[in-house]
Simulated assay, not measured.
Amino acid sequence: MQFNLDDNSQEPLYLQVARQLEDAIFLKGFDEGEQVPSTTEISKQFHINPATVLKGMNILVSEEIIEKHRGLGMFVTKNARERIKVKRQNEFYSDYIQNMVEEARKLNLSKQQLLDMIERGFEENE
């Protein structure tokens, strides 16, 4: 797994760790039940504090995407990809769809006009 942490990003390092590990799981870089790199491995690779890495990993533990096995490390949970998918669909709705509908209303677009625009977007990007 290759992390690309950005020291200059506005996003804190621990959130970058969580997001990139989540991406790796979602994109099948790790299978259910598979061990993920340890906090020590990640911290040494990027020269960051292990506590920073652990803080990011604990986010994924709280979301039941990875789980701790005492003395063994962290492992991908069963149904982790499905949890990530549902989470991202909910975020997509709140981050994009709600704003898009609000802007469409400001522009006096009908529901059908908005759906036509979305359809056009899909067709243009095939």
Rank of each mutant, 00 (worst) to 15 (best):
I42K: 06
A24N: 08
Y93H: 09
E103A: 10
V61N: 00
E103N: 09
L114I: 01
T40S: 10
I25K: 08
L109E: 08
E32F: 01
S62E: 15
L60F: 04
L109Q: 13
L13Y: 00
D6M: 02
S9H: 02
S94D: 13
M117D: 02
I25S: 07
I97V: 15
K85Y: 13
M1S: 11
K87A: 14
R83G: 06
N8L: 09
L107G: 08
L115H: 07
V53W: 00
G29V: 09
Y93S: 07
R120W: 01
I118E: 01
E91A: 14
A80W: 02
E64K: 12
M1G: 11
Y14I: 01
L54C: 02
F122L: 15
I66Y: 00
A104G: 05
N79Q: 12
N49Q: 12
R19V: 04
Q35N: 08
P12Y: 01
L115P: 05
V101K: 07
N4M: 03
G33K: 06
T77D: 04
R70M: 12
E32M: 04
Q98H: 03
K68A: 13
E124M: 09
K28F: 09
K44Y: 07
M117P: 00
K55C: 01
V101D: 05
Q20I: 07
S9V: 04
L5K: 08
R70L: 14
Y96F: 11
E126N: 11
V17N: 00
E82A: 08
K44F: 02
N90S: 14
Q35A: 15
Q45L: 14
E32T: 12
L27E: 15
E22Q: 13
K44T: 11
I66L: 02
Y93T: 12
V53I: 00
M100K: 07
N125L: 10
